[in-house]
């Protein structure tokens, strides 16, 4: 199968999305934001050094700026827009708001996605595991203190709910 870039299909948040007339060099981040109406993932470094563009691809948190969009066919992509099933905030989103983990909010969608990925794979992370898991997500406003609190709180809430 050799799709050229005249048209290709991506599976994003459970939906099939068609991309037409794209330039080959477009990153998944660009296509999500500028072609698919999903600007939740943010671009801040274009080289995988800030994590703002984090999305889930086949159960892995990846930097969408480093994924060539046209090669992401036949993968399952979820973005921050796809986290909530019923329009309500997820436990992680709720914790971010309640603990003051959000200031300018530019890093927030990437962090929220990364933390979901962490808690889905490691529901009771230690403090150092939390720090390592989000060490690829740069925040310039908060100094991370409230973000750590938010992750701890979300993990605790999830534990409580699953009891």
């Amino acid at each position: 199968m050799t799709p050229n870039t005249e048209v290709y299909q991506l599976n994003v948040n459970g939906k099939k999305c068609e991309v037409r007339d794209a330039w080959i060099g477009e990153s998944l981040l660009y296509v999500l934001r500028e072609r698919l109406g999903l600007p939740g993932a943010k671009g801040a470094c274009e080289q995988g050094e800030c994590g703002s563009c984090t999305v889930i691809m086949d159960d892995q948190a990846v930097c969408s700026c480093l994924v060539m969009a046209a090669t992401a066919i036949d993968t399952e992509i979820s973005t921050v827009e796809g986290l909530s099933v019923d329009g309500k905030l997820t436990d992680v989103q709720d914790a971010f708001v309640n603990e003051g983990a959000v200031q300018c909010g530019f890093c927030t969608p990437g962090l929220v996605v990364a933390v979901h990925n962490l808690l889905d794979t490691s529901p009771t992370p230690t403090d150092i595991e939390i720090k390592e898991a989000i060490s690829g997500n740069i925040c310039r406003c908060t100094g991370y203190g409230r973000i750590f609190e938010a992750v701890r709180s979300a993990a605790a809430t999830r534990q409580e709910t699953n009891k």
Binding site: G48, A61, V62, C63, L66, A114, I134, S135, G136
Partner: peptide, 8 residues
């Protein structure tokens, strides 16, 4: 790199 980079 970071966890995201190590995934790729």
């Amino acid at each position: 790199g970071s966890p995201q980079i190590r995934a790729a």
